[in-house]
């Protein structure tokens, strides 16, 4: 019996509806494999996986040129239906990625829109002095309806952001904790142009993409620095931030977002991370004492110039600080507790 040649790869859905992924044969590291993307078992697109991905290079997948990006033809599949997207290597027909592309939300979206329209009508009524008495009970009823609507939603919807300002790399250990963290961050997402890249390091939160819509989900082992690399690869934000794995909070992210300059570059580092704990135990320094929401952040241009990072958040933070000094980029530390001031060291 001949053992099947090893094959590695993965498939993800991006916020803009396209699919990206990678495919690599460890025993043939120089070969560019042909990938087929199937929609409900029908081949929709096939392409050579030869795009460069920095995270693959860092992970030791050959020269890193094994990525692919697929946009499905506009009418394939019908937009109104749920479908299964499968990625397989063409020659061996081995499937390495499969995901469910959800259809449009069921009735709740329409109900929510109707509730919004009704709320606007009530607001108009309230502006008429003669109708104020009628408007008040209507508003109460509408509030109850909205509450019911929210409770009936099983799926958490993050607002889709066309041009995200900030990409947040969220290291994920399990589904329940990740859901709690994302719920905490969701209220601020639209306001600050946030996109969240959940990086599942153990594979224990595989259900996450089905429970949270418009979330970028990646499954990859690695230290926090690698998580930031993966998020930078997957996300489109002008700024990159690494979430504090312990307690992200919308308020802290808002504080960070307010401090980010509209243009230009810089590095933000959680003061608690510097200097690293004696003995170099990154795990100890990862659990920040206060809900800061992020460990470190920098602009995408600086991240590109600074080169690869490795290790825990503390080590990556220290490396970023040093490189900011060497590259002449502004460096800020964020002080605790919230509301935290941003001061130059």
């Amino acid at each position: 019996m001949v053992a099947a040649a090893p094959l590695q790869g993965d498939l993800y859905q991006r916020a803009d509806g396209a699919f990206d992924g990678w495919c690599f044969a460890p025993d043939r590291p120089d070969e560019r494999l042909v990938v087929e993307v199937l929609v409900n078992d029908t081949v929709a697109v096939s392409m050579v996986a030869a795009m460069f991905r920095r995270d693959l290079l860092l992970r030791g997948c050959g020269d890193g040129y094994h990525g692919f990006l697929v946009r499905l033809p506009p009418n394939f599949p019908p937009a109104a239906s749920e479908c299964v997207i499968t990625a397989r290597e063409r020659r061996s027909r081995r499937v390495f990625g499969r995901l469910l592309r959800p259809g449009p939300p069921p009735g709740t979206a329409r109900l929510a829109r109707l509730a919004d329209e009704a709320a606007a009508l009530v607001a108009a009524l309230e502006r008429l002095p003669a109708r104020r008495g009628t408007a008040a009970p209507l508003r109460t009823a509408l509030g109850a309806l909205a509450e019911e609507l929210g409770a009936s939603r099983r799926v958490l919807w993050l607002p889709p952001v066309a041009a995200p300002r900030l990409t947040l790399a969220l290291p994920v250990e399990d589904t329940a904790t990740a859901l709690w963290q994302i719920r905490a961050l969701a209220p601020a997402a639209a306001e600050i142009g946030l996109e969240i890249v959940a990086v599942d390091r153990s594979g224990a939160a595989a259900a996450l993409p089905a429970l949270v819509r418009n979330l970028l989900y990646r499954r990859a082992p690695g230290d926090p620095a690698a998580v930031l690399e993966i998020a930078a690869e997957a996300g489109r934000g002008a700024w990159l931030a690494l979430a504090d794995a312990a307690e992200p909070s919308a308020a802290a992210l808002l504080a960070l977002a307010n401090a980010l300059p509209a243009a230009g570059r810089g590095v933000f580092i959680n003061a608690a991370l510097l200097p690293p704990a004696a003995g170099g135990d990154d795990a100890a320094t990862l659990r920040l004492p206060a809900p800061l929401g992020f460990g470190l952040a920098c602009d995408r241009g600086f991240w590109r110039d600074a080169g690869p990072l490795e290790g825990g958040a503390a080590r990556a933070g220290a490396a970023l600080a040093l490189r900011a000094h060497l590259l002449g980029a502004p460096l800020w530390r964020v002080l605790e507790p919230v509301p935290r001031g941003i001061v130059r060291p």
Partner: peptide, 28 residues
Amino acid sequence: ELGVVRLFGAADLGTQGMLSGWSGPEDG
């Protein structure tokens, strides 16, 4: 091959098919 997306640049097509009037393949 019909239907297969090929990428210009050093990683996939390289100089394959290029007869004249091309600069060297770059990254992507």
